[in-house]
């Protein structure tokens, strides 16, 4: 019973904060809403027993990627008036509502059941070790490809940000 409560409670707040990210007018507020969203999502992962994934969700996503977003917002440093997008019209609200309802419906159709307790109760004691063993044996090739992807990202970002000589 408490499993259901925790999950659906978290899910509700996650949805609220995601809607806030897209609808709020001030970009810094949107970034903070994103932080809350990702934090709660890490909570969902932790609740399902994926503690390692929850930890790196916070370290990488919340602690690095949103910091990047915030840096960009702060660097660009626009006038307060320019920061705000115009008030959304009624039809924009309606579209958002329809999209959310659509996703909820798709989710409902594809779920086996609404009982989340089943997944949470299969928690294994040492998630990090299991993830490590699987990653370095079965998923070795994707792991090495990740390093190439990171290399590409490094080269790309330097290319974008460097002043041309």
């Amino acid at each position: 019973m408490s499993d259901q409560l925790v999950f659906w409670g978290l899910a509700g707040f996650i949805t609220l904060s995601s809607v806030a990210v897209v609808t709020v007018r001030n970009p810094v507020t949107a970034a903070v809403a994103l932080v809350i969203n990702l934090f709660l999502l890490a909570g969902v992962y932790a609740f399902q027993g994926a503690d390692f994934v929850a930890a790196i969700q916070i370290i990488v996503y919340t602690g690095a990627i949103v910091v990047l977003f915030l840096f960009v917002i702060m660097i660009l440093n626009l006038d307060p008036e320019h920061l705000r997008s115009p008030r959304p019209r009624i039809w924009e609200h309606l579209v958002l509502g329809v999209v959310i309802a659509g996703f909820a419906y798709i989710g409902y159709r594809f779920l086996d059941s609404l009982d989340v307790g089943k997944v949470a109760s299969n928690r294994l004691p040492d998630n990090t070790y299991d993830v490590a063993m699987i990653l370095f044996s079965n998923y070795l090739w994707p792991f090495e490809i990740v390093s190439i992807l990171i290399l590409l990202a490094i080269v790309g970002s330097v290319a974008i940000a460097k002043k041309p000589k």
């Binding site: 690095a64 910091v67 990047l68 990171i150 490094i154 940000a161």
Partner: peptide, 16 residues
């Protein structure tokens, strides 16, 4: 723009 570059490099090395 150096702050931007620092942040991106931080993300990548954090993943590592």
């Amino acid at each position: 723009v150096k702050f931007y570059l620092t942040a991106i490099l931080f993300i990548l090395f954090d993943i590592e």
